[in-house]
Simulated assay, not measured.
Amino acid sequence: MIQVLRQDSDGSGTQLLLHPPRALSARQFVQLFAALAGLMVFAAGLAWLSGNRLAPVFALLHGFLVAAALRACWRSSNRREEIRVGPDCVEVIPAA
């Protein structure tokens, strides 16, 4: 997402704030993971009933991997960059 912070009245400079869009709120993120974990547990239960005794272990491991990946994606959306465009230079500054 691009947000215009400031634009000089004479048109010689602009200041922009860039940050990745978030498709989910924190609550929706937790709900998504809960739904995915529920499906993994259900599938592992069916596999266990059909004779695959290691399915719950692999489902648990897979759940941790999916949680770590979703958390990394969520945390990476906190990045922001400020871009200042002037008549003779362009500056890109990582914002906190």
Rank of each mutant, 00 (worst) to 15 (best):
L32F: 09
H19E: 13
A43V: 13
R84L: 12
A37Y: 06
G11E: 04
V4H: 07
V92Q: 08
H62C: 08
S50D: 09
L24W: 01
V4Y: 05
A95E: 11
G45I: 05
C89V: 13
Q28P: 02
E81T: 15
E91C: 12
R80M: 10
R6P: 07
V4A: 11
V4L: 11
R6N: 15
D10Y: 03
I93T: 14
H19D: 10
V4Q: 10
D10W: 06
F58A: 03
E81C: 14
G13E: 06
V66Q: 04
A47C: 02
L61M: 09
R84T: 12
G13H: 05
D88P: 03
A55R: 00
A44V: 01
G45S: 14
P56M: 01
G51H: 03
Q31K: 15
F64P: 05
A95Y: 07
L16N: 03
T14Q: 15
L36S: 03
L17S: 04
V66P: 02
A69E: 12
G63C: 07
L49G: 13
P20H: 04
L54Q: 11
V90M: 11
Q31R: 14
A35Y: 06
R22T: 05
E91L: 15
Q15S: 14
R27N: 09
R22Y: 02
D88H: 10
V85L: 13
Q15K: 14
Q3H: 14
V4T: 14
G11P: 02
P94R: 07
A96T: 09
L18D: 04
R6E: 14
P56E: 00
I2G: 03
E82Q: 13
S76G: 09
A44Y: 00
L5A: 07
L16A: 06
I83E: 01
V92Y: 07
A69S: 13
I83T: 05
R22G: 01
A59W: 01
V57N: 00
V30C: 06
R53Q: 12
R80I: 01
A35R: 13
A35W: 06
R79N: 10
R27K: 14
L65E: 09
A69P: 06
G51W: 04
F42D: 15
S9Y: 11
P20D: 05
R84E: 13
E82D: 10
L54F: 07
V85W: 04
H19R: 15
S50A: 10
L16W: 06
A37N: 11
P56H: 01
W74N: 06
F64H: 08
F42P: 10
P20M: 04
A44R: 00
S9K: 15
E81H: 13
L17D: 01
C73D: 15
L49Q: 11
Q31P: 05
Q31I: 08
D10M: 06
M40F: 06
A59L: 01
G11I: 02
A34V: 05
L24G: 00
V90I: 12
G51I: 04
A43G: 11
L49F: 09
V66D: 05
R80Y: 03
A95N: 09
V90T: 15
L32T: 10
E82H: 09
Q28N: 07
C73M: 14
A43E: 14
R80A: 07
P20G: 05
S77I: 06
Q15N: 15
A37P: 02
L16I: 10
N78I: 05
W74A: 10
D10T: 04
G38T: 04
L39A: 14
A59Q: 00
G13Y: 02
E81R: 15
